[in-house]
Amino acid sequence: MTVAAAAQPTTVAARFSPGWITQLLQRYILHIVVIGLTVGWMLPTIGLLVSSFRPFALTKTSGWWTALTPLQFTFQNYTDVLGQSNLGQAFFNSFMVSVPATVIPVTIGAFAAYSFAWMKFPARNWIFLALVGLLAVPLQLTFVPVLSFYVNTLHWTTSDLEATGIPGLPWVPLWLAHAGYGLPFSIYLLANFFRALPSDLFESAEIDGAGTLTVFFRIILPLSVPALASLVIFQFLWVWNDLLVALIYVGGAPEVAPLTVNLADLTTSLGQGSNLLTSAAFFSMVVPLIVFLSLQRYFVRGILAGSVKG
């Protein structure tokens, strides 16, 4: 009885105490800010989506937010985009560019990152520093030297798609370019992640008899799935959405050009066909969305839990 009687005034007091207000503010303000940021970030995308379903004439005269009055929807933009004869080829090209251009830098990056993080070799830190420096180099700077190397030294030209010497794989120049552009970041991200793994694990594995490669494949890789998944998403999105690099290295040849080049060709320089860009943008978004959603479950927090703490 005494306990209950004593407890009551405290709860009443607690309800009006500043601590309670702080808690409320913390909870709701945090949510409001997060939701606000999300909405603000998504608004243009939503506008794009709405516009893609509106008739071209209407989009020129009124904003997308008036779409409900009058309600006029059409699939014309989508049928126009999908109706292009070479869309299938472009889609296929995009895959043939994006998948290897993701796998190559992530794989090489993982091996390199392991050596930077856990192996001792001369000038290791200097090389790593140089690598981080490369992150700051704008890729436009590399177009002329790399292209002249491709054309003048290797004689890979866009007019001869078999020039790489590998029949059926005219995307090799693009793979190499994307791998090169993606590697510094791959190595940097993975090396930092690997470095954060507890050294006891490696020492234990060493005593248990695991060699360098075994440690890499049986311990580092399984523990680095979250880092690898995010890196794959980054790199895949970057390559899939890339227009510039594809245009520079393989030009507009429809046999090799990825989706982005194909879609960019829809509009003329005079702005003709700009209505198609809205639906084209959404169409090209499908694959990255699938990639993101399917890899999302690998972002497991606390994957290291239970390994080295008491």
Partner: peptide
């Protein structure tokens, strides 16, 4: 280390978490 025929228990246990 692997050829010394020893086994070690670490302070942190160093279990393989996966």
């Amino acid at each position: 280390a692997k050829d010394r025929d020893i086994a070690m228990v670490f302070q942190s246990y160093a279990l393989y978490p996966h």
